[in-house]
Design a protein around this nucleic acid. Structure first.
Lengths: 216, 216
DNA sequence: AGACTTTTTGTCACTCAGCGACAAATATAC
DNA sequence: GTATATTTGTCGCTGAGTGACAAAAAGTCT
């Protein structure tokens, strides 16, 4: 059995086999790390697509086949925390509230992807001053909204496009974004910042309070 | 008195006076309308900067002086609803809850900018399929977050960067975005859609419910 | 070992976005 | 009218991103 990670039923078995999703993902991750390295060193605008490609020894044309723009090269790093959570939404136990579930997912992620964590923190910080990176960051979270909506609709027995579902998905999602930004801001070299799980809990608690007594 | 809309104290009175903010705003609005016209007609990617500039009889160079990218040309139209609300936040009466205040602001806006409304609806719809426009749309709302945070912090007597303030500002803001998207989706030629004020109220009610009984 | 087939990568040429520099036009005060 | 400051246009450039096609890679089959 010649390791086919995509066991499609109609394998002609003829010619070069398509690149596995796993391998594609690895290449994308390598590009992402090269991009963030150059972005932090020279700044985003001063970094060209050629720079990123040359850093990896690939041609610029291939780079654009993996990512549609130089800013989007770092997308895999920015999605880091979120796609762990959205993946875990599929196994959301029925005896756990969503905040509890998300909090644990966030905590797990924090430990798991330690090497990428520093890059992610750097990127979220750059998000403030670099419009191109901010666009990617906001879009990453916007994409997650859909996933949250489906999970919530499924649990609540409502349609995924019900207003209450969409608003809840959006609010939860945006709370996670604010928590991540806070985490990035507070995490310094002295590592005195709060944990990601604590921040997620705190942010979701605010959401759970509704608009609060102050704004009403 | 030679109409100076920026009555700066140190008017040398010598040379051509700077363009008033009002006049700049008018030019930007003209560009925005030309852009959305071409975007809807030919699609975003098929519309070049030269097209937009030529539509108005200005040079391409001047176009880029008013906007940093062709997608951002429509920004004035996308901010339409939001900047009315953020402007009114300055005169937020103390006997009104934030939802009530926003609801009324949204309703007023709906009537006031009737001509721009159709373009805005078209744009928000295009936001789904055009990544460039979506980026502008998301960034517009992201910018509003800051304004909401300041208003809420001021009312609550908290620091603008307090976690609770930021989360509340973000959640309210995102609820407005979902309401606007819903409005754009539901508003057809037969005009059977709900009113903007109703949608804002409904969305903010969901926020005020917190995470709700379902997700906990 | 071939020959064969399919995917991936690289090379080339091209369009368009967007900016810096400088000239030309415009609008005011004197 | 002249002088001055602002705006606009022209020119030329770099870089993003794409389509077309050739070269290389990685397999299968005999």
């Amino acid at each position: 059995m010649p390791r086919t990670e995509t066991p499609s039923p109609e394998t002609t078995g003829r010619g070069r086999p398509p690149m596995s999703d796993r391998r594609k993902h690895i290449v994308r991750a390598q590009i992402a790390h090269a991009a963030v390295k150059l972005f932090t060193a020279k700044g985003v605008s001063a970094t060209t697509g050629d720079d990123i490609a040359h850093e990896l020894g690939i041609s610029t044309r291939t780079l654009w086949r993996y990512f549609p723009s130089k800013e989007s090269c770092v997308r895999p790093l920015l999605t880091g925390g979120l796609d762990v959570m959205t993946q875990r939404l599929r196994t959301w136990p029925s005896d756990l509230s969503l905040p509890e579930h998300l909090e644990r997912s966030g905590a797990l992620d924090e430990d798991a992807e330690a090497p990428s964590m520093a890059s992610m923190v750097d990127l979220i910080r750059m998000t403030r001053t670099e419009p191109g990176l901010r666009a990617v960051w906001l879009d990453v979270h916007h994409s997650a909204e859909e996933v949250f909506a489906e999970a919530i609709a499924d649990r609540a027995g409502l349609a995924p496009d019900a207003l209450s579902v969409r608003v809840r998905a959006a609010t939860i999602n945006v709370a996670l974004r604010v928590a991540a930004e806070r985490f990035a801001d507070r995490t310094g070299d002295d590592d005195q910042g709060e944990g990601m799980a604590d921040l997620i809990r705190a942010a979701l608690d605010v959401v759970d309070d509704g608009l609060g007594p102050i704004t009403r």
